[in-house]
């Protein structure tokens, strides 16, 4: 675990030492603010629409952050040193995940200004805000795990980012395609898409199947990541 934390700490610090890292954090916070303005035009102290859009933005953010984790390191050549250090693949993967998760936590913390502003102007229900942020963490980690797996499979950061977005869009698209089906294929595709699993977070409810879904996506991403790292040796 010490090695994983070492990698995570380095990635976290390095992110905020680069203009890219600072820019993505500031940009994410600003985007959340713009979305808030649009949502509040409904004149209701409800953040369901805001969180819904935030989850989509998390997909973009995860793709951008994870492209640096493996693809950018391989392009620079530093991945070779990381993988030839006495560290197990799962430690590398855990470290990379925690590093991006730390960045994500800072980025998400910067959006806390939005619910605070809403609370200062109206009387929002605290429950959906709480579950909304639980959702942010779950969705964020799951999307990061997907992004990391894609990032490990390529040495081009741009390909990594576009690839991660493509995978996430494909998952999201499963929910749209399901609309034209019936019976269990419809159900399976509906459950495959993240869109169907975030709706509860927006409304103050937490259900086990949604939590299991995102934890599964996270676990599958990490396993794929380890396998990709091992297969490329």
């Amino acid at each position: 675990m010490r090695q994983a934390l070492t990698i995570a700490a380095r990635d976290l610090r390095a992110n905020f030492l680069t203009a890219f890292g600072l820019g993505s954090t500031a940009g994410f916070a600003a985007a959340a603010g713009v979305v808030l303005v649009v949502v509040l035009r409904g004149n209701q102290a409800r953040l369901a629409g805001w969180f819904g859009t935030l989850y989509v933005l998390l997909g973009v953010l995860a793709a951008l952050l994870t492209m640096r984790s493996f693809a950018e390191e391989e392009r620079l050549g530093t991945l070779e040193l990381l993988l030839t250090s006495p560290v197990r693949p799962w430690q590398v993967v855990t470290g990379k995940l925690l590093g991006v998760a730390g960045v994500l936590l800072v980025d998400v913390a910067a959006t806390l200004a939005c619910p605070l502003l809403v609370a200062s102007m109206g009387h929002p229900d605290a429950g959906p805000i709480l579950t909304g942020y639980v959702g942010v963490i779950l969705v964020g980690l799951a999307f990061v795990a997907v992004g990391l797996a894609v990032s490990a499979a390529t040495s081009n950061p741009l390909v990594a980012a576009v690839g991660s977005l493509a995978v996430l869009l494909a998952l999201w698209g499963a929910g749209i395609v399901s609309g034209g089906l019936t019976g269990w294929p419809r159900l399976a595709l509906e459950e495959l898409a993240p869109s169907g699993h975030v709706v509860g977070f927006l409304r103050g409810t937490l259900s086990t199947k949604d939590v299991v879904y995102f934890v599964s996506l996270l676990a599958l991403g990490l396993v794929t990541n380890v396998v990709v790292l091992e297969e490329r040796r």
Partner: peptide, 19 residues
């Protein structure tokens, strides 16, 4: 996921419990 779908439990922390 199939198991979780079949045995879903839900917690509601909203004030209104609308859902």
């Amino acid at each position: 996921n199939v198991a979780a779908y079949g045995h879903d439990t839900q917690v509601d922390v909203s004030v209104a419990h609308r859902f």
